[in-house]
Computed example of a mutant assay.
Amino acid sequence: MAYIRVGISGWMYPAWRGDFYPKGLAHRRELAYAAEQLSSIEINGTFYALQKPESYVKWRSETPDGFVFALKGARYITHMKRLLDAETGLANFFAAGTLALGPKLGPILWQLPPTLQFEPARLSNFFDLLPRTTTEAAELAAGHDEKLAEDRVFAQTEIELPIRYAVEARHESFAVPEAVDLMREHDIGFVVADTAGRYPQITTPTSDFVYVRMHGDKELYASGYTDDALDEWAERFRGWMDEGLDVFVYFDNDMKGFAPHNAMALLDRFT
């Protein structure tokens, strides 16, 4: 049966302390607390820099069985390399500890820069490099370069599991049937992004799951969702689930602290 997972993008926000996080909660307990309230978290630190294997091990140990992390792919690959010549970057990304999450490894998100237009060949070549199982990812990770010292490498997997990928496109040229067809051909989820109208919102499923990022419907990163808005989104999510699609939803409207409260309110609609 299809399922829904609801969470937040990141969890270390000082403004949440004394609000979402109870007053006096130790900072080191914040992940564990958030994981008790939600069913998934999107790790965005992986976008900015390679993490250490011990960080992934720690995150895994601090969350309950059945919990899942989504990972935001490295901006080195999406924004600097712009998806070109990405094999070594991918090897480093997977070698830096990603696989230490084990069964808690959820979808991997590639957020493209707003200036990157739809180019079928560029995207296809990148998609062909992506390992589709944790075993393939471990094999790719073995090709990491010297940027990773050996004591910062975790290039193994305890169990073979499929790896899902999603792409968040931010250039209007992606809002065409050809882009949808390309994503579907490569079994890549087309992210449904609610961005207060700033970027395209593409809602056609292209894989066996749907990845949704809630950035704010009125003001990007800053506005909260009303009960009526959450009801409308929940109905859309139920429709996808009825089609047999798993749904992953992450609230990124964190600027004023709405994200965790909106996430919990949405999750309540499915419990």
Rank of each mutant, 00 (worst) to 15 (best):
E219V: 13
R236N: 09
R198I: 13
F20A: 01
L123G: 03
A138Q: 02
I77M: 08
Y56Q: 05
M214Y: 08
G244D: 10
E158A: 14
D85M: 10
D217G: 14
F94M: 07
P53E: 10
F270V: 05
T195N: 09
K104G: 04
T226S: 12
E146P: 00
K81H: 09
F190D: 01
E87R: 14
D181S: 15
A263R: 00
H27D: 14
A259G: 04
P107T: 10
E235R: 12
L31R: 03
N125I: 06
A100N: 00
L38E: 00
P114Q: 11
P200T: 06
V249H: 00
E119Q: 12
I77K: 00
G197H: 02
T157K: 00
T134K: 08
T204N: 12
A265H: 08
F67P: 00
G143C: 04
V249N: 03
T63M: 09
Y21P: 02
K147W: 11
F67A: 07
E150P: 07
A2T: 11
A91I: 01
F251T: 04
Y199L: 06
M264R: 14
Y199A: 03
K147M: 13
K72P: 03
A26P: 03
V153D: 05
M255R: 15
L148R: 01
T271C: 11
D145N: 15
P162G: 13
I43E: 03
P114L: 13
A196D: 05
L266G: 02
F47V: 05
R184T: 08
Y211L: 02
D65P: 07
E87L: 09
A169H: 07
T63K: 03
F93T: 02
D254E: 12
E139V: 15
F67R: 01
E87M: 09
A265T: 13
D65M: 10
D217T: 14
E30G: 09
L90R: 05
R236V: 14
E119M: 11
L83P: 00
E185H: 12
K23F: 10
L220K: 05
G73E: 01
W11E: 05
A193F: 08
T78D: 05
R122E: 04
T88D: 07
L130V: 12
